[in-house]
């Protein structure tokens, strides 16, 4: 599978996938998308890289700890968002919404605390998917 064509396709496609996934993540509240999809898409990009270049490209297995902390951290982030709702006087997972004027595109974007929650979800999905990949790859 590590043909030249595949490698070069990967080189172009995976960055696009990553950026697109970030877009999906941030716009998830308004458009199709969200933490899951974005996370899976990022993972798909990373998987492509993995398939094309093997273990060496990122030194995957040296980074297994990084992915471990990635999903733990994501979990913690989501949990803390939920807790924040509890401490600001609501209940667990109480969400808040803020409207912020974006500086360049002159649009009013809504930032919901749910967005932060979604980022946690994103991190978990990324971390877990890549962990799985590295774990299975490392077995060799």
């Amino acid at each position: 599978m590590t043909s030249l064509i595949f490698k070069s396709i990967t080189k172009t496609v995976s960055p696009i996938l990553m950026i697109f996934s970030l877009y999906l993540l941030l716009r998830g509240h308004q458009m199709p998308g969200g933490g899951f999809i974005a996370g899976l898409m990022t993972s798909a990009g990373l998987v492509l890289i993995y398939l094309a270049y093997g273990c060496d490209f990122f030194d995957w297995h040296k980074r297994s700890r990084f992915f471990y902390y990635l999903f733990s951290g994501g979990l913690a982030l989501s949990f803390l968002t939920g807790l924040a709702g509890l401490f600001i006087g609501g209940t667990f997972l109480k969400s808040g919404v803020a409207h912020v004027e974006m500086p360049f595109i002159h649009e009013s974007w809504e930032f919901a605390s749910a967005g932060i929650f979604d980022i946690g979800v994103y991190l978990v999905v990324c971390g877990v998917c890549v962990s799985l990949m590295t774990l299975l790859g490392e077995e060799e």
Partner: peptide, 10 residues
């Protein structure tokens, strides 16, 4: 317990 589990992970 959920929070504890997460802290323990970290």
């Amino acid at each position: 317990p959920l929070g504890t589990a997460i802290v323990l992970l970290l």
